[in-house]
Design a protein around this nucleic acid. Sequence first.
DNA 1: ACTATCCTTCCGAACGTTCGTCAGGATGAT
DNA 2: ATCATCCTGACGAACGTTCGGAAGGATAGT
Lengths: 192, 192
Amino acid sequence: MTATRIREVALKHFAKNGYEGASLADIAAEVGIKKQSIYTHFKGKDELFLDLFEKVQAKELNFVADYLQRHKHRSIDQLLYGFLIQYIDCYEQDDNAKFFLRTVFFPPSHLYEVIVKQGYYHLEKLETMLIPVFDQALADGLITPDVSRDTGTAAFLAVMDGMFVELLFGGAELSLIRIEASWLVYWRGIKK
Amino acid sequence: MTATRIREVALKHFAKNGYEGASLADIAAEVGIKKQSIYTHFKGKDELFLDLFEKVQAKELNFVADYLQRHKHRSIDQLLYGFLIQYIDCYEQDDNAKFFLRTVFFPPSHLYEVIVKQGYYHLEKLETMLIPVFDQALADGLITPDVSRDTGTAAFLAVMDGMFVELLFGGAELSLIRIEASWLVYWRGIKK
DNA sequence: ACTATCCTTCCGAACGTTCGTCAGGATGAT
DNA sequence: ATCATCCTGACGAACGTTCGGAAGGATAGT
C-alpha cells in the first residue's frame, strides 16, 4: 500500500524537519513517486500531517496502557523505573516520540488549537492511568504519605519530560545516565 | 537602532514559528521596513538567526551565573528552588528561553552541527556552575551522602528540563504546579 | 472470448504564491 | 562628497495545489 509508505516516510521527515521544514516533494521522492501522487491518498499536507498525529498519539497512549496492564503485578518502584527504561529502548528506533513531542511543543501555527487540545487530552489520559498506581502504593504503604498521589504523579510526569528532553537532545546513552540519576532521587523522594 | 529592532522582532518570530516558519517579509513588516532592508544590517537569514542564537545563549548562561552569584549565601534548597521559580517568572516576559530551547531541540538541518555543539557546551557550563553548589552542600552536610554531586546535579538538570517542557507546553501556571511537585519530591530525595 | 466501462494510481504541466536574495537608485545626515 | 539607510524592482527557486490524461486491473454485458 502506497498510503502507508507515504505515512512512514512523512513521519520521518516531519520528525526531523518539522511541518514547515518537510516538503511533499522530498517525501514523495523518498517514496519513489511524484509529489502530485500524494494527493491521490491525502487531501493535502494538513490532512497527511493530522492523520499521522492522530495515529501517533493513539500509539503513544496504547504503549503506556499496555505497559501498565502487562506489569501491573510489579511493585511501584519496579513498575515506574521499568517504564522509563523501556521507553528509552523502545523509542530510540522509531520517530513516533520525536514527531509527537515536536508537534505538541511547537505546533504549526495554523493548527495550534487542534494540537494543543489533543496535547492536554494526552496529559490528562496519562494522569488518569498513573494515579491509581500511586493510590495503590499509598494504600500498600510503599510510598510516604507526605507525598500525595497528585504530587507523586506530577513529579513523575516531570521525570518523564526530562527523559524526553534528553532523548531528543542527547540520545539514548545520555538519557540513561540522566534517568538513573533522576530515578534515584525521585524514588528516595517518594518511598516510605 | 534598526538592527536591534530587527533582532527583537526576529527573536519573537523565530521563537513562535521556528526557523523555517519565520519569514523575513513578516519580520520586516512588523519592524516597519521592507524585507530587503534587512540586508543592510545582516548578510542574510542565517546570519540573523545565528547572531540571535549566540546572544541568547550568552544571556541564558549569564542569567544562571548571575543568579548563583547573587544568591550564593542562600542555603542550597532556597537557592535551587528560588532558581526554578525565578526562571518561570523570567521566561514569561521574553522569548529568549523559547527560542533557545526550540533551536537546540529542533535545529534547522543545515545548521545542525553548529547548534548541537553549542548545546553541549551549554549543558557543560551549567554542570560546571552547579557542581560546586552540591559540593558545598555535601560538605555542609545539608544533603545526603547517598546522592553524589554528579547524581544531584544530573537530577536537578532533569527537573529543569521538566520545567522547560511544561513552560513550553502549558505556560507559567501549569509549570508552577508541576515545579512545586517536582521540587517537593526532589528535595525529599536529596536532603539529609 | 471480446469489448466497453469504470476505478485506482500515477505523472506531466502548470498554477499562483511565497521564499531568500541581489542590484541599483533615492534620501538625508555628517 | 561620503556614507549609511531604506527603497523599488526584479530574480530564480521552492512551495502546496490543481487539472487532464495515461496506464492498468477489475468488472459487467454481450
